[in-house]
Amino acid sequence: MSPLPTTVPAIVRTRVRAAVRRRVVADPVEAERRSLLLRLMSLTLQYPDPELVAARPAVAAAVAALPESPAATELTTFTDWFTHEDPDVLARHYVEMFDLRRKSSLYLTYYLHGDTRRRGMALLALAQRYRAAGWETDGGELPDHLPVALEFAALSGPGGGEAPLRQHRRGLQLIHRALTDADSPYRHVLAALLTLLPPPTEDDLKAVAELAAQGPPNEDVGLDPYTTPTPLEDSHR
């Protein structure tokens, strides 16, 4: 693997602060490669604020330095667009894809539980999983926000660290489907992530089709202490 730009590790870790007990893995080179992929996915799925926009050349260089893989190919296609697009266009596109469309929201528990009491419990369980692993977020996002889950997976390893991603595989598949239908370049980031997860079963595909047609369950109570921010509430707007 070619050396990464020296600025990349700091950039990748600026958004989600964490302390974690690292697990021992059999293949540290493969673990590092996978971790970097997940961190780059986490970074590219965050709101393109001025800091991230300024870091685009370094992010693209980090992606270009990845060893060849289906995930790296997808990320390269994404960064080709992301690096050269106008920042205002990037911001508007991000809001449209992830804040204004329920089928491509980045809050994973929504796809399993919708706006129900069960979602509040699922969010609490996810936060407890993070703490049990010795990991604390900065509190700026809900624990099921996909960039947060990706950072946890990157730091904690492919076993327990990636468990939340595997648990929400159907939601991830639906996000990818919605982004593909919208012809959004962000579909390539989701496609990259899906290459790292087990392939979908027939039941998974059926459930995704049902979610796309009917949406998650709805019950607008019981989410405290967690609620999904609306576009007006979210601090990056």
Rank of each mutant, 00 (worst) to 15 (best):
D80I: 02
P158G: 03
G159C: 08
L90P: 01
Q214P: 07
F152H: 08
R170C: 05
H188Q: 08
P225S: 06
S235Q: 10
G140Q: 09
T14E: 12
E219V: 00
V189L: 07
P158Q: 13
V89P: 00
R237M: 08
W135N: 03
T137D: 00
V95I: 11
A207I: 11
A61S: 15
R177D: 00
M1R: 14
D115M: 11
A154Y: 05
H168D: 12
Y226C: 08
A60Y: 00
A125M: 12
A207M: 13
L211S: 09
H145N: 09
A125C: 09
Y226A: 11
R118T: 08
D224G: 02
K206P: 06
H145L: 10
Y111H: 04
S184P: 12
T230N: 06
A71P: 01
P57D: 10
L43H: 04
S2D: 15
A65H: 07
D49W: 01
P217W: 15
T137S: 11
A213C: 04
Q167L: 15
M97P: 03
A31R: 11
A192D: 01
T201E: 12
L38S: 07
T109P: 03
Y226Q: 10
P67W: 01
S184E: 11
T6N: 08
A18E: 13
T228H: 04
G120A: 06
E51V: 09
A18T: 14
E68Y: 03
R129P: 03
Y226P: 10
S105M: 06
Q214T: 14
Y111A: 01
R187T: 14
E30H: 12
D203W: 06
S235E: 11
A31S: 14
V20Q: 15
L179G: 02
V59R: 00
H145K: 01
A178C: 09
L100Y: 01
L36I: 10
V95Y: 00
D181M: 07
V59W: 07
V29F: 10
M121Y: 11
A163S: 12
L126R: 00
G215M: 06
G114T: 07
D115C: 06
Y94R: 02
L172E: 02
D115P: 00
P164G: 04
T14F: 08
L52G: 05
A71V: 00
T230W: 06
E74I: 00
T228N: 05
R101S: 11
S156L: 05
